[in-house]
Amino acid sequence: MLQTKNVTFFYNKETQFTFPELKCNASDVLLITGNSGKGKTTLLHLLAGLLRPKNGEISIENTNISSLSEKKLDQFRGKNIGLILQQSHFIASMSVLENVVLASWLATGKKAILKAEKLLAELDLENQKHKLPSQLSIGQQQRVSIARALINEPKLLLADEPTSSLDDENAFKVADLLEKLSKEYKAALVIVTHDSRLKNKFTNQINLN
């Protein structure tokens, strides 16, 4: 589960952010909405431990991540946080399956090949697993990054505009999958978005405006 308290951040004097308190339990979905420039992505990066807050506390599974060292944070992030980005990035030289397996190896030192195959099958990507990521459609790529985010069974699943580049059909498919899988893996799911299609689907929302 995720809990934040009095989190503030600033890049410089002009852009300062004070974020409302967040709470999201395992298997729950929290939607963070807001217009551009309101710090949606900054908040997501703070939650993922990519940025450190200037004040306040972010705890995931009762661990205050802002107190971890850089190296510990890398390990913690790999094991406990799954990240799905607006644009999917992959290791271009590795196949879909290898990309997912690499994520398990980087986090745990073990190659979860069977689990990766199972996840890809669940996401309807069984026939694509030996292709290079660049050979897949955008919707398929987004599903691969979901598989990659889930391979280590994270406690927290963060999604940054996961549907904004998808058409309606794919957007709902991805939203359904995210909801279903986060329940299945008992992860807290936080989605940052301005996509109104999602606002109608998930009721637990926080608006940064």
Partner: peptide
């Protein structure tokens, strides 16, 4: 330049700077 996303991604997945 092309690979910095790859590297960022690896870091997100738990790769250390040293790796």
């Amino acid at each position: 330049k092309e690979r910095k996303y790859e590297f960022a991604l690896m870091r997100i997945n738990g790769a250390s700077r040293f790796q």
